[in-house]
């Protein structure tokens, strides 16, 4: 299962091969839970995505059917939004990785000598979790507003055109996504880098490799499981995020992501089949991208 990827890659112990009733019994609550809260909603979602408007029906009235054209319709209408979602999510993941790796490396490797600093920095990474995600995003919105210090400062220094603005643009959305998911990237990276054996880095140096070569040939491969976990934890929720891109937060009318389209179809136009087919498409694309990514990054054993 893909969830295995979030574990930090130690070899699994072989369990007893005999069939055991107790094991089944212990699994039962989990299986029932998944059936009730994952499988049933999924089946219901698939069936909704194939519904057609009820004849003579009022707004939001649909009946069971096999209208697979719904999928073609939403891809035609919202293809741009689907593409935009994944571009934003990929950009945010890359930025979060570039930002988090040095940070996690510093906390996990360089700061080993000072446990107090290490703990303090970890608290700083986790601290934003204590404040609501929505509040943090709203705070950024007012910090980055036209009349705020940042933007008016940039304008005063002529680094931004006088009539330019930041909130409501795609850059603001990617910024918000990156910011909000940095802890999800930093923590898994930290947990692998913390156990990095620094003697291996010394060995690299002893064998006349440049520090950069050691980094790419030793450090990166050893921290791969952290990178994969961090990327998955960032990319999957970022692709489906609808808060940052919402017009009420950092986005504008040109930045809607697939989550915003689903929200609008579900709540405003009451087009449930379109919302359901978009959700299924989102899940399917994420599943394919994650599978390919995990295979390419050579960590299949994590799946």
């Amino acid at each position: 299962m893909a969830f295995g990827a979030f574990a930090t890659g130690t070899a699994r112990e072989q369990g007893p091969r005999r069939k055991s009733r107790i094991a089944l019994l212990l699994l039962l609550p989990g299986i029932l839970y998944l059936m009730l809260f994952f499988l049933v909603p999924l089946v219901s979602l698939v069936l909704t995505s194939l519904q057609e408007p009820a004849p003579m029906g009022d707004i939001g009235e649909y009946q069971t059917a096999f209208k697979w054209e719904n999928y073609v319709d939403v891809i035609g209408t919202y293809g741009e939004h689907i593409l935009r979602s994944f571009i934003y999510a990929i950009l945010a993941t890359i930025f979060a990785l570039l930002f988090s790796y040095p940070l996690a490396y510093f906390i996990g490797v360089k700061a080993r000598r000072w446990p107090l600093v290490q703990n303090l920095l970890l608290v700083l990474v986790i601290a934003p979790f204590f404040i609501s995600f929505l509040l943090r995003t709203l705070a950024w919105k007012s910090i980055l507003s036209d009349e705020g210090v940042v933007i008016s400062g940039l304008k005063a220094l002529s680094l931004m055109a006088p009539d330019a603005h930041f909130t409501g643009t795609g850059a603001a959305v990617v910024f918000g996504l990156t910011y909000n998911f940095i802890p999800f990237m930093t923590l898994p990276l930290y947990s692998t880098l913390e156990r990095l054996d620094t003697r291996l880095l010394e060995a690299g140096g002893d064998l006349y490799s440049k520090p950069s070569t050691t980094f790419f040939k030793v450090t990166i491969p050893l921290s791969m499981s952290g990178i994969v976990s961090g990327v998955l934890l960032t990319f999957i929720p970022a692709a489906g995020d609808y808060i940052n891109a919402s017009r009420n937060f950092l986005g504008g009318s040109g930045t809607a992501m697939i989550g915003n389209v689903i929200e609008s179809n579900f709540l405003v136009t009451l087009n449930y089949p379109a919302a359901a087919s978009l959700s299924i498409i989102l899940m399917a694309v994420i599943l394919v991208m994650v599978t390919v990514y995990v295979k390419r990054s050579g960590t299949e054993d994590l799946l």
Partner: peptide
């Protein structure tokens, strides 16, 4: 509708949006 498991049918009955 019956194709889903029993529980799924229950959910459907609750969420059905037909007239």
């Amino acid at each position: 509708k019956g194709a889903g498991v029993g529980a799924a049918a229950l959910t459907l009955a609750a969420c059905s949006t037909g007239a």
